[in-house]
């Protein structure tokens, strides 16, 4: 694959170690640049928006760097964006974590797991099966039974059901893949999910940001 005309950025807002994402991109043939500079993000043609941590701290850092505005702009310009974990969560409108208003590319809430079975631990950590409920170019090569690596205590809940592309089950089913227009987000970590995760990243790099309506 040749992505030489591709200016892919991995957004850095002090929310965790991004080099594992960068390494996984390199493995599928994409040299992605880690940056928190809005100028650089403004000129990107493809964006990966990762992150771990808490919603409140994440939003403060995003706003301090002026990343929320440039991200909204890139979204409106049709640039393909992949949100991972916290990057997906704060792309919704509100998080129960820290009762935080978030960027709002997609209308929806981020909710905390309410697990009744005390033997199930929170955070939900480990490998779990992802069921594709709606086809999407980024999920093109995912098959029934394929598992991804998760680490989280909160999950996305888009307002519009048609934004839900993948679900997993932890006591009850929850949304773990969200899409709208040129934005796609995963609650799981493709960069830590072996060959299948790399496949998802490769599909993202081939995606032009459009979806069949």
């Amino acid at each position: 694959m040749n992505f030489s005309n591709d200016r892919t950025v991995i957004i850095d807002y002090d929310a965790g170690n991004l080099r594992s994402v960068q390494r996984a991109c390199a493995e599928v043939g994409c040299d992605a640049l880690i940056t928190g500079d809005p100028e650089v993000i403004q000129h990107s043609t493809r964006i990966i928006f990762p992150g771990v941590g808490a919603a409140g701290a994440a939003m403060r850092s995003i706003q301090a760097h002026g990343i929320d505005e440039v991200l909204l702009d890139r979204y409106e310009q049709g640039v393909p964006i992949l949100g991972i974990c916290m990057g997906l969560q704060i792309s919704l409108t509100h998080s129960e974590e820290d009762d935080q208003e978030t960027i709002g590319l997609i209308e929806g809430q981020v909710k905390r797991f309410q697990i009744k079975d005390l033997s199930l631990k929170v955070p939900h950590m480990g490998w779990n099966e992802v069921t594709v409920v709606r086809p999407h170019p980024v999920l093109a090569h995912i098959h029934p039974g394929d598992e991804f690596y998760f680490v989280h205590a909160y999950y996305p809940h888009p307002k519009d059901e048609s934004c839900v592309y993948g679900i997993a089950t932890y006591e009850t089913p929850f949304c773990c893949a969200v899409g709208r227009k040129n934005f796609f987000g995963t609650q799981f970590h493709p960069e830590k999910s072996g060959r299948i995760g790399l496949q998802l990243l490769a599909s993202f790099f081939k995606w032009d940001g459009s979806i069949a309506e």
Partner: peptide
């Protein structure tokens, strides 16, 4: 290892 092994 991190360059070629994509699991935790």
């Amino acid at each position: 290892v991190a360059k070629e092994v994509f699991i935790p």
